[in-house]
Design a protein around this nucleic acid. Structure first.
Length: 130
RNA sequence: GCGGAGGGCCGGAUGGCCGCUCGGGCCCCGGCCCGAGAGGAAAGUCCGGACUCCCUCAGGCAACGGUGCCGGGUAACGCCCGGGCGGGGCAACCCGACGGACAGCGCCACAGAGAUCAGACCGCCCGGCAUCGGCCGGGUAAGGGUGAAACGGUGGGGUAAGAGCCCACCGCGGGACGGGCAACCGGACCGGCAAGGCAAGCCCCACCGGGAGCAAUGCCAAAUAGGGGCCACAUGAUGGGGUGCCUGACCCUGGUGGCCCGGGUCGGCAGCACGAGGCGGCGGGCGACCGCCGUCCCAGAGGAAUGGCCAUCCUCGACAGAAUCCGGCUUACAGGCCCUCCGCGCGU
RNA sequence: GCGGGUAUGGUGAAAAGGUAUCACGCGAGCUUCCCAAGCUUAAGUUACGGGUUCGAUUCCCGUUACCCGCU
């Protein structure tokens, strides 16, 4: 683990789920469109969109990988990595009652080093919530 | 050893931690344990089916689309196997939209005399005139020239020059008979030669084909909006409607009365994972494949599941992600393995 | 899931089997004191790969890219 990335050192079973806000998935097209009109931040491996629903509740997130990302294999791989990044960092650095949308990019999302993508998400969240 | 041909297979492996989906079990309903979890093409959607709903059903005609040597396999196919024919290769072997051009219509640019039952430019020969190259009439189609293609090819005889005019061989057309289920093959003998190409131009012939698609379809069932269904009687004596047309049968609709409460949308469940299934054995068949027996259960989501990190090894990992299912075809694919066969060289 | 269409100079379009054409733009030249206009001229693997044909932009098959319907 690279200390300079600021990622919390991970120990097995040391993250009680009851303490962290639960994650829900975005399913409706309207939620994605609303998030696209909210705050946005680009990083090397992905784009991040965020919106405060104003009603509180859980953190919700969605993944977008359009056909421009590549064929089905490339899209699936990008979505898996983005989902893993979100699973690792959003409960720690996201805010309750917000929607987050991660958008994959061609070539880069599937190939960029994972630790850097985690650091990028943390940095992007901090900047958006400043 | 080098070069080549055909067929089949694999498509990183192992372990640990944190996560995802499904099934089973336990359960203090927080969760925990165990098991399973993408492909040979899952792709393109080019064919063929299963399944479901719709068109009222059957027959005929017409239209449209597809297939196209023969036989077999199959649920079926435009697929596969075997055979025939044609082409390529020294060979193993590979490739082929491979029915019909005397059913008809159409097209064959440019060049060329002439492009289909055509035709004579340069030529060759004969006769007449002139006699210096020539001119006129006739014969001829061997040679030259044009073209992708020119009403057989080679040789000889023959002739004024020539010509299937005659002869031999080859080619071509017909064909007794024989072989084969068939495609087709062999072929006595006959004809002296008439017969261009294009049907992936229209078309003809034979065969096949109703339409839509799991977001199909069925069941349960909020809010909201008010309508819907069933039965009986009557009969304008035949109206209107039901595939493009026709025929036949059948059905619907228009009236009155009675009874009943149902229908679609959000959502949920089913369809939805046991199948023309995999593996093994035996038997039949040249083969595709078929039969019997044993054994196994092997993804099932509904924003859509395989990822992240670490360690070791190697040849350092290609194309690529199930969405109702199955049989094919086509296209993409790093590298590697196995079997059989052919040619050449060397050694024995 | 099912189905359809298009691809031709830089751009937009023609060409129904026979030398690939037109407009605009662009480059060069002429003309003008200079510019514009005008005149002359150049530029194409007909998306790609095969096949049919003597010959293919055209006909057939496959591939790629883009676009459009229905559900």
């Amino acid at each position: 683990m690279n200390p300079q990335t600021g990622v919390t050192k991970e120990t097995a079973g040391a993250e009680p789920a009851a303490v962290l806000p639960s994650l829900e998935s975005l399913t409706k097209r309207a939620d994605f469109l609303a998030a696209a009109k909210g705050l946005r931040k680009g990083t090397t491996g992905f784009h991040l969109q965020a919106r405060d629903r104003g009603t509180g509740g859980p953190i919700r997130f969605g993944i977008t990988c359009s056909r421009k990302v590549g064929n089905a294999v490339a899209r699936n791989r990008a979505k898996r990595r983005l989902r893993e990044v979100a699973r690792a960092e959003l409960p720690l650095h996201g805010c309750a009652g917000w929607d987050y949308v991660l958008i994959g990019r061609r070539e880069i999302t599937a190939a960029h080093p994972f630790t850097e993508m985690r650091a990028d998400l943390v940095r992007a969240l901090q900047e958006l919530h400043r």
